[in-house]
């Protein structure tokens, strides 16, 4: 099977995943599309949103379509790295036992690991997750465990900030995307979520999602084919580069935000890793949009999710991050010309 045929087949399957997840997550088409892009880019994701908007349901639905192991852990202040690796208990015959923790339980079959409220966990946990995300390995029981198909999805609660440990810049940079999940705004949708009994039982709801639409073990290979076959012209590469440069030095591109001293705003813009992620995600977006070449629209589709959490504001502006990041990325897209 040639690459074009392979891409076409997988394109249909990717759209099937989206359609399946949309049946249980109404009004969240954009997060579903972004999560799908992240899945096929093989990049980790931070979810940020209010409580009760269906983040866990979304992840479980996606995990069900991919197959493979799914695990989750709740971030708490007393959570230690060992809690991820093993747990101890007393067996039925009264002997102490050591069993693999959530990270090791599925071995190489672990396809999705959901770290809920990552900012409640201590920096030691962040550090362990950094290694798992970067290398997809962890050392335990005198051996190295590999997770070649692992996708880490972390959730950050934006409502409560007390007694939390902000995910450090280095860790944030390793996430491909930060996806915002907001409550649906349409009255009809909200009414549907409130009234329709289908949404009352999450387990039953998730059972409606077709399982194993794709084989999670194929995802790395498909991702390579996508990256190798979706074209990026010189103009689009230059455009993506200019967008990233504008995140570091918006003044050079004539970008001004109201009531903001631009020369003191940015501490660091998009990193080289972020630049690479932007184009990789744009290729997948183009593929999902049925194109063989990346267009500016494909970059726009992923720009905020890939770039916003990679822009580091000076401390004086960090408190206004949510507002400034949105404004700045919007202005960058409005101001940087292509071609």
């Amino acid at each position: 099977m040639n690459a074009d045929q392979q891409l076409a087949d997988w394109h249909a399957q990717a759209l099937a995943i989206e359609a399946a997840v949309r049946t249980v997550m109404v009004g969240q088409d954009r997060p579903i599309r972004l999560l799908c892009i992240a899945t096929f880019t093989r990049g980790h994701v931070i979810l940020e949103g209010s409580v009760g908007v269906g983040k866990t349901t979304l992840l479980r639905a996606v995990a069900r379509t991919l197959g493979g192991g799914y695990e989750r852990i709740e971030g708490t202040v007393d959570l230690m790295p060992s809690d991820l690796v093993y747990h101890t208990y007393v067996s039925a015959d009264g002997k102490p036992q050591v069993a693999p923790g959530p990270l090791l339980k599925h071995g190489e079959a672990l396809a999705m690991f959901f770290f809920n409220e990552i900012n409640r966990a201590r920096p030691q946990m962040h550090s362990l997750m950094l290694r798992v995300m970067a290398e997809r390995t962890v050392s335990a029981f005198n051996r190295e465990y590999r997770f070649p198909h692992l996708l880490v999805v972390a959730d950050r609660n934006r409502v409560e900030r007390e007694e939390t440990f902000e995910v450090p810049a280095a860790a944030r940079d390793r996430f491909l995307m930060e996806i915002e999940i907001n409550s649906p705004t349409g009255v009809t949708l909200l009414q549907q979520l409130m009234v329709d009994t289908r949404f009352h039982d999450t387990e039953r709801l998730l059972n409606q999602v077709p399982a194993d639409i794709v084989d999670y073990r194929d995802l790395n290979g498909v991702s390579r084919v996508i990256q190798g076959n979706i074209q990026t012209s010189d103009a689009i590469q230059q455009y993506a580069l200019n967008l990233c440069r504008a995140s570091s030095d918006p003044g050079a591109f004539g970008i001004v935000l109201e009531d903001t001293e631009m020369s003191r705003l940015i501490q660091a813009g998009v990193s080289p890793r972020g630049m690479s992620y932007l184009l990789r995600a744009a290729r997948v977006a183009a593929w999902l949009n049925g194109r063989a070449s990346v267009l500016p629209e494909d970059i726009h589709e992923v720009f905020f999710a890939v770039v916003a959490h990679r822009i580091f504001f000076r401390p004086a502006f960090e408190l206004r991050r949510a507002e400034l990041a949105k404004q700045l990325t919007d202005r960058i897209l409005q101001s940087v010309a292509a071609p």
Partner: peptide
């Protein structure tokens, strides 16, 4: 020439104009 024309479109719109 196309870039020049695009620049005029962008200046008229006050933002970058794409196909979309």
């Amino acid at each position: 020439g196309l870039q020049t024309f695009h620049a005029a479109m962008n200046a008229t719109a006050g933002r970058v104009v794409f196909t979309a």
